[in-house]
Design a binder for these strands. Structure first.
Length: 502
RNA sequence: GCGCGUGUAGCUCAAUGGUAGAGUACCACCUUGCCAAGGUGGCUGUUGCUGGUUCAAGUCCAGUCGCGCGCUCCA
């Protein structure tokens, strides 16, 4: 078993070597946090998206699709809270080079006998009040002050005044003077719409696809013939100016999301709906080849919830670099529709015919990153193994998502009957499936080349096909076993394996 | 954004300040009756980029970009 970093390295290497993922703008030295998908990566990624759309939109009666723009009216982000909240106020300690989130760094003046003798600082945790009081006592002793110590009242660093920045000690060194003022990093990419580059033209690239759904809620309700409960699904690019992108395509600045806003009545039991969606998403992951034992749940603690959320559970995946979020399933209540209704002045409510009640629906939001599913599939599928003394690299991708569904080979290429028959089968299969044709090199080498890119079946036309009309051999990627099928049977066989509709 | 490390052929890696190489992959042809066989030939580099030191830089120095790890961050 390879060490985690080795496994990631091998996977990144394979991605580059075989055309799954390239770093973006590579000829200019690359661009941190941006990745391009090569010929095989584009296939795999599209197959993931297609499977998701099929399963959640086409095969359900209660979810409809949407494709909204990447740039919305800027007020969208005011209403959603992103302009005010999608930021990380950060503080640096110039001496220790440590970086803190300003809203997690707390400070208080130490007041003895009505005189401020200095400041203490602590990092946010349960015991920070006690720690701050101890520090204050210590400071009082050090300065040999007499008198009553006034109660320590902690405030976070975002509330510090300019005069206080220089007086608050760094938690790392305990000495004042090394902390910078809090600096705000809004993670939305800004651009300008139209010719004028002034404040009135500022717009943002969406940091999530969700808001495109909310601002179209009324349109869909008015035209979509939907009945509560129902969902609106959307796939598309989103952009976040991450301070520090890491772990290959896991956290990038341009990425793709697949989100559903599933609207329910406020009278409905949202906890049940939430739980059902978590189950549904787990099942979907399993169905496309992500094993259940690598998935786990992380319910966000109540006090850490984002401003919109009544409850959020992350579906975590065991990546080689650690257990990380694959999907978030959030119960957003009626926060978003209420916000957009209030800010826009438009009605965002639902009229229930049976109860004659009018209300703003609540929503459950399963939100998953395509790139993360891509990486989860690759890390699950990647195997190095020994076959008859030789190292074999194989991607055990399920047929439904594999870039090529099958490869067609003539056993040898110097016998025209075999080559012609193989080419004919290739052309026939290509009308229905993405298949690959390869005549160059020994047959074993050709099998191995396909193993490495996850092609589940190798179809070989051999002498028996020609001489005895014995059909073709179908070689399975994972077991190396071969079966003989007629060419007609091969079409049905692939249809069954690829589309899974048995 | 900070610190440490790192960057040579598509990939894995060599090369004491002195002519940039190997393996592999890839392409063509030959050979080949099922798991990376063999033969012949071919392709592959502004040594990440920009500047500096030097008679001479892949090698030393500075800056910059990318990557890895740690801190930090992560709706």
């Amino acid at each position: 078993m390879a060490a985690p970093t080795d496994k990631m390295e091998s996977i990144i290497n394979l991605c580059k070597r075989r055309g799954f993922v390239f770093s973006s703008s590579e000829i200019y030295g690359g661009l941190n946090g941006f990745f391009d998908y090569g010929p095989l990566g584009a296939e795999l990624k599209n197959n993931i998206k297609q499977a998701w759309w099929q399963d959640f939109v086409h095969r359900r009666d209660d979810i409809v699709g949407l494709d909204s723009t990447i740039i919305h009216h800027p007020t969208t982000w005011k209403a959603s809270g992103h302009i005010d909240n999608f930021t990380d106020p950060l503080v640096d300690c110039k001496e220790s080079k440590m970086r803190y989130r300003a809203d997690q760094l707390f400070f208080a003046p130490v007041i003895v006998a009505s005189e401020t003798i200095g400041y203490v600082s602590v990092l946010e945790d349960e015991s920070m009040q006690t720690k701050a009081e101890e520090l204050a006592q210590e400071l009082k002793r050090k300065l040999a002050r007499q008198g009553a110590l006034e109660p320590i009242q902690l405030k976070d660093y975002t509330q510090a005044t300019e005069a206080q920045y220089a007086l608050i000690p760094s938690p790392a060194t305990g000495k004042p003077g090394s902390l910078t003022p809090p600096r705000s990093f809004n993670m939305m990419f800004q651009t300008y719409v139209g010719a004028m580059q002034d404040a009135s033209a500022v717009a943002y690239l969406r940091p999530e696809t969700a808001q495109g759904i909310f601002i179209n809620f009324k349109n869909v309700v008015d035209t979509g013939r939907v009945k509560l409960p129902f969902g609106i699904a959307q796939m598309g690019k989103a952009f976040r100016n991450e301070i520090n992108p890491r772990n290959f395509i896991f956290r990038s600045r341009e990425f793709e999301q697949m989100e559903i806003e599933y609207f329910i009545s406020p009278a409905a039991d949202w906890k049940t709906a939430h739980r059902e969606w978590i189950e549904g998403c787990l099942n979907w992951f399993e169905s496309i080849g992500i094993p259940r034992d690598k998935l786990s749940l992380y319910p966000h603690p109540q006090e850490k919830l984002a401003h919109y959320s009544k409850g959020t559970t992350d579906i975590m995946f065991e990546f080689p670099f650690g257990v990380q979020e694959l999907q978030g399933v959030a119960a957003r209540g009626d926060f978003d529709l209420t916000q957009h209704s209030q800010v826009s002045g438009q009605k965002m409510d639902w009229f229930d015919e049976s109860t004659k009640a009018r209300f703003i629906p609540h929503v459950i939001e399963p939100s998953v990153g395509v790139d993360r599913v891509f990486l989860a599939l690759l890390t699950t599928a990647y195997h190095e193994e020994e076959v008859e003394g030789e190292k074999r690299i194989v991607l055990r991708l399920p047929a439904r998502v594999a870039p090529y569904k099958a490869a067609v080979f003539p056993l040898v290429k110097n016998k025209p009957e075999i080559v012609e028959r193989a080419e004919a089968l290739y052309r026939r299969l290509k009308k229905r499936f993405n298949v690959f044709y390869d005549a160059s090199g020994a047959i074993g080498r050709r099998y191995r080349r396909q193993d490495e890119i996850g092609t589940p079946y190798g179809i070989t036309i051999d002498f028996e096909t020609i001489e005895k009309g014995a059909g073709v051999t179908v070689r399975h990627r994972d077991t190396l076993e071969q079966v003989r099928l007629s060419e007609d049977e091969v079409v049905r066989f692939l249809d069954e394996k690829v589309n899974g509709l048995v």
